[in-house]
Amino acid sequence: MSTNTQFAERSDKKAIELGSGLAPKFDSNGLIAAAVSDYDSGELLMVGYMNEESLLRTIESGEAWYWSRSRQEYWKKGGTSGQVQKVREIRTDCDQDAIWLRVSVEGNGATCHVGYRSCFYRKIEKNEDGSITLTFAEDAPVYDPAEVYGKTS
């Protein structure tokens, strides 16, 4: 994807924290964390990673693109499942080392590749005996991944 969009130079702290130029701070692997929430409810849906190109693709297309650390390739969220994340707003934090996407999810509204609406479908609980377990925060999956992807995760 060719682009005319340019990021601002990372300069002094005041410019990064209070200025109007987007100067993302990518980590040593060229990535930046992206938290993704539902635009209407504010529910946290997922956390992904972007590199410079996937952030630019997201800004230009209005649909969420990520860098897959495991597959080492770009992926458009919903490209296979139809659960495309339409970006309604993009924010960055004070030092510009994290991205927040506020999205509307097409299709069945789910985000997680194992069938749940949110990738954060379980909660961590400490039991009275000191053990730690995971319990489900969502009642059931929204869809069957085997039907969507042709295989289980």
Rank of each mutant, 00 (worst) to 15 (best):
M1H: 01
T3M: 00
N4T: 13
T5A: 01
E9A: 10
S11E: 13
S11T: 14
K13D: 15
K14P: 00
I16D: 14
E17L: 13
L18R: 14
S20E: 14
G21P: 06
L22V: 14
L22D: 03
P24F: 07
P24W: 09
S28E: 13
G30K: 00
A33N: 07
A34D: 07
V36Y: 02
V36D: 07
Y39V: 11
D40R: 10
S41F: 10
S41P: 08
E43Y: 06
E43R: 13
E43G: 06
L45H: 10
L45N: 10
L45P: 08
L45A: 08
L45G: 12
M46Q: 06
V47T: 12
M50H: 04
N51V: 03
E52R: 04
E52W: 00
E53L: 01
S54N: 08
L56E: 01
L56C: 00
R57T: 00
G62Q: 04
E63K: 11
E63A: 05
A64V: 14
A64F: 09
W65K: 00
R69Y: 03
R69E: 09
R71L: 05
R71S: 11
R71F: 04
Q72S: 12
Q72P: 02
Y74W: 05
Y74R: 05
K77D: 12
T80L: 01
T80D: 13
T80C: 01
S81V: 05
G82F: 05
G82N: 10
Q83N: 15
V84L: 09
V87S: 01
V87D: 02
V87K: 02
V87G: 01
R88N: 15
I90V: 15
R91L: 14
D93R: 10
C94Q: 14
C94M: 14
D97G: 11
W100D: 00
R102K: 15
V103K: 08
S104D: 15
V105H: 03
E106M: 03
G107S: 14
N108I: 08
N108M: 10
G109F: 09
G109E: 12
C112E: 07
H113L: 13
H113W: 07
V114E: 15
G115Q: 12
G115M: 10
Y116K: 07
F120V: 10
Y121F: 14
Y121A: 08
Y121R: 02
Y121T: 07
R122M: 13
R122K: 14
K123T: 13
